[in-house]
Structures are given as structure tokens and as C-alpha cells.
Design a protein around this nucleic acid. Structure first.
Lengths: 137, 137
DNA sequence: TCGGCATGGTTGGCATTGCCAACCATGCCG
DNA sequence: CGGCATGGTTGGCAATGCCAACCATGCCGA
């Protein structure tokens, strides 16, 4: 078992742990992990359907359905793009934004036990190391 | 933005990144993330249906269905527990074990780009920090 | 000993997620 | 203007996941 293997195991276990927390918190607001991500992306900016699908690695038809249901729930809105008539822009409603904010707050609180046992220096270290891990080649 | 917030953001992004890789690798073998986890658990030991469900945070009926399909595919087998007639033990078949091993190998290879830019000391550091994160209170 | 409760699984019904193929509308360009 | 490319939607399908209802087994206590 190499050091790399150890890290990968820890990464995978952490992944399931964090995903579990997010799934639980999302579920309490009837949001799947994917809906959570969509809402998170649209918190800052609007995006077109295909863009969202590509970003999450999903088929565009899947994203169309996700937007459908979120729109029916009043969380998102579809809008025509003035520059290109084929494009459908998606953006959050105030209700969607508010829900995204609340879920994010709860998620941070729910994740606190995981980071809680790290001191300031360890937090910095971990953030830096994860940034390295996330850096695309 | 506090140091804790930074770490949480990095953790969440890492989670989606790793989950994406695992989903892709699993998908290449027609395995969902959940099936992957079940197979992973049963790599070492056998387990009862409810135990698996509890471990993954799923309803027992969901697990029953998962086992159904995996059994139909020849990856798992159900067995009666000699000590308790109500219990159904689940364990892998040789084919399931072999598939689990192959997927694990591929997953390690696919995750290499993420850990690749860390030197030996950083790998150790990251492993230790993630272990801290994973430690249950 | 037996009647009731608890535990472990399965089943059926439902909504969601996700894929693919087919399709429509718009835009681009020779 | 006639194709081709691009962006979305639709319909059909399988898998995931929940809940409620159910069956079988085990465990007691009266």
C-alpha cells in the first residue's frame, strides 16, 4: 500500500462522506445532489442549458428535465437569449436564490464536525493541498 | 470568507470531482456509484441486506433492489444465515470480485492525475489531514 | 405454550434521474 | 437559398430511491 493509495482511499471515503451530508441536507429541502449543484452554479451567474449539462457531465436532455422540474417549482426561470434565438438561458428566481443560500448555510453547519478537529494551520494546509488536487493539468 | 469556508469549498469541489471520476469509471462497466460501493464493501466481507442499506444510508427496499439486479448479473449471491432465519447474507461471486478489482484498478489510474502533482511529503500530509476529517466524533 | 411485538426482507407503486434517438427551430455559410 | 451545424425538447426506457404494506422469523411475557 503506497502513500498514493492511502490518499486515494481517504479521498474516496471523504467523497462519500461529504456527498452523504449534501444529499441529506438537500433531501430535507427536496433537492437532489444534481439540483443542488445547478442551483449553486446559478447562484452567481446565468447559464444556458447545454452549458449546465456539460459542466455537470450530463446529457442535455437530462438537464432539460431538471430545469423543467425546478422551473415548475418556481426555483428557476427560462429566458430567451437575445443574441441567439436557439439558446435558452436559465437563471434563478428570488425563491431559488433564497433556497440555495439556506441550503448552503445548512451544509456548512453540517460539515463543521468534519473540519472541526483541525486547527487553523491544518485548515490552511488542507485547503492548499486540495487546491493542488483540484488543479487541472 | 474564513479558512473553514475555504476548506469546505475545496472539500465539496473535490467531492464532485472524485464522484465524477468514479461515476465515469463505474459507468464503463455498467455500475452505478452505489453498486460500486456495495461491491467495494463486499470485497472484504459478507453483509446482510439491512446492514448494507444502513451503511450507505439507503432504505432497505432500495438495497433489496440493488442486490436483485446485481445478483441477476451474477455479481452477488444471496445466502441464508444459519443463525437467524430472517437474515439474508449477501456476498460476492468470483465474477463480482474480479469486476470489483478491475474497477478499483481503473479508478486508481483515473485518480492519478489528481494526486500526481503532490510530492511524497504532501501525500502523507493530505492522508493524515483527511483521516482527521473522517474521524467520527 | 401461545399470543403479540420486534426484526429482516420483499413487493408494488410512485417520482426522479439519466441515457439515447428522434425531432424542431434557429443560425451559418457556400 | 439549400444544406449543415448547433441548441433544446420530447418520448421511451432502465435504474435509483422512497414509502407503505406485507410475509416470515424470532423473541418474550403472561
Amino acid at each position: 500500500m503506497t502513500a498514493t493509495d492511502d490518499v486515494m482511499d481517504a479521498l474516496v471515503r471523504t467523497t462519500f462522506e461529504v456527498a452523504g451530508v449534501l444529499t441529506r441536507i438537500g433531501g430535507e429541502h427536496d433537492l437532489s445532489l444534481t439540483q443542488l449543484r445547478v442551483l449553486g452554479i446559478l447562484r452567481d451567474r446565468r447559464a444556458r442549458v447545454t452549458e449546465l449539462a456539460a459542466y455537470l457531465g450530463l446529457d442535455k436532455s437530462t438537464m432539460s428535465g431538471l430545469v423543467d422540474r425546478a422551473e415548475r417549482r418556481g426555483l428557476l426561470t427560462r429566458g430567451k437569449n437575445p443574441d441567439d434565438g436557439r439558446v435558452v438561458d436559465v437563471y434563478t428566481t428570488p425563491a431559488g436564490l433564497e433556497l440555495a443560500q439556506r441550503v448552503e448555510d445548512e451544509a456548512r453547519r453540517a460539515l463543521t464536525p468534519m473540519t472541526g478537529r483541525l486547527d487553523a494551520e491544518q485548515l490552511d494546509q488542507l485547503a492548499k493541498l486540495l487546491e493542488l488536487v483540484l488543479t487541472r493539468p
